[in-house]
């Protein structure tokens, strides 16, 4: 196949996505605002001024997961409405480039969201803050979980964008698929947020997250072409 290579094409699409979001911030702003509102809701719903341990871990991951759904829901919408998908399909490039680009877009969005949402969580709700070193462990879990959310989110977004009830399909498909990520991530960060001082990072949950990322990355790679065939 002539034309630019897969990675060059993926880079171009990724650059386009980030440029769009920078010129007219839409998705990221919504995700960040959502996370702030979610913390306020958790404060009143749980009737707690601060949370720690399992509860803190759960609050953080429910917030990240639901905020991520906002990003997943928007991922392909502009391309479908403005003809970006057709343009991409006409270009002499590998379809996988679109998967790479969209996954990286979602991954970048999630990291950007967490740059705002995690410190906000620390200020608003988290009981005793863990030390600087322990945040490194949280970062590792965030990266592993974000990868899984990005891969599965891209797959679900590519399916849902072609359906009639896009919002419904996105939520009902993505949530059950992401339950293992929630199990792994919330178990992994719970000891770090413990009230009695940060415990060590449980390695087996990192392994579960990494396994999840690997399997769904391979699946997405194998199946994505079928979702953009026309």
């Amino acid at each position: 196949m002539s034309g630019p290579g897969t990675f060059a094409a993926a880079r171009a699409v990724l650059a386009k996505e980030l440029l769009l979001e920078r010129r007219a911030p839409q998705t990221l702003v919504a995700m960040a605002l959502f996370s702030g509102t979610a913390y306020v809701i958790f404060h009143f719903a749980l009737q707690r001024d601060s949370v720690s341990g399992n509860l803190a871990s759960g609050v953080l991951w429910v917030t990240v997961l639901l905020a991520a759904l906002l990003g997943v829901g928007r991922l392909f919408v502009a391309d479908r409405d403005e003809g970006g998908l057709d343009g991409f399909l006409l270009a002499p490039v590998d379809r996988t480039a679109l998967l790479f680009a969209k996954t990286l877009t979602l991954f970048t969005f999630l990291l950007a969201l967490e740059i705002v949402a995690v410190p906000l969580f620390d200020i608003l709700l988290l009981g005793p803050s863990p030390g600087i070193g322990d945040w490194g462990g949280v970062l590792l879990v965030l990266v592993l979980a974000d990868l899984g959310i990005a891969v599965v989110g891209t797959l679900v977004a590519a399916i849902a964008v072609r359906t009639r009830s896009r919002d419904l399909i996105t939520s009902i498909l993505a949530l059950p698929l992401l339950i293992p990520v929630v199990i792994g991530a919330s178990r992994a960060t719970a000891p770090i947020f413990a009230a009695a001082g940060a415990g060590s990072l449980p390695g087996r949950w990192l392994a579960v997250l990494a396994l999840y990322d690997l399997i769904f990355a391979l699946l997405a790679w194998a199946l994505f072409d079928f979702l953009v065939e026309d």
């Binding site: 797959l155 399916i159 072609r162 359906t163 498909l173 698929l177 339950i179 293992p180 199990i183 792994g184 579960v208 396994l211 999840y212 399997i215 769904f216 699946l219 199946l223 079928f226 979702l227």
Partner: peptide
């Protein structure tokens, strides 16, 4: 699309059981 779903969900089952 349903076939893609069926494959993804099939692979999801063992992962979910492990977790």
């Amino acid at each position: 699309y349903a076939a893609v779903f069926a494959v993804v969900a099939g692979a999801f089952i063992p992962l979910n059981f492990i977790a």
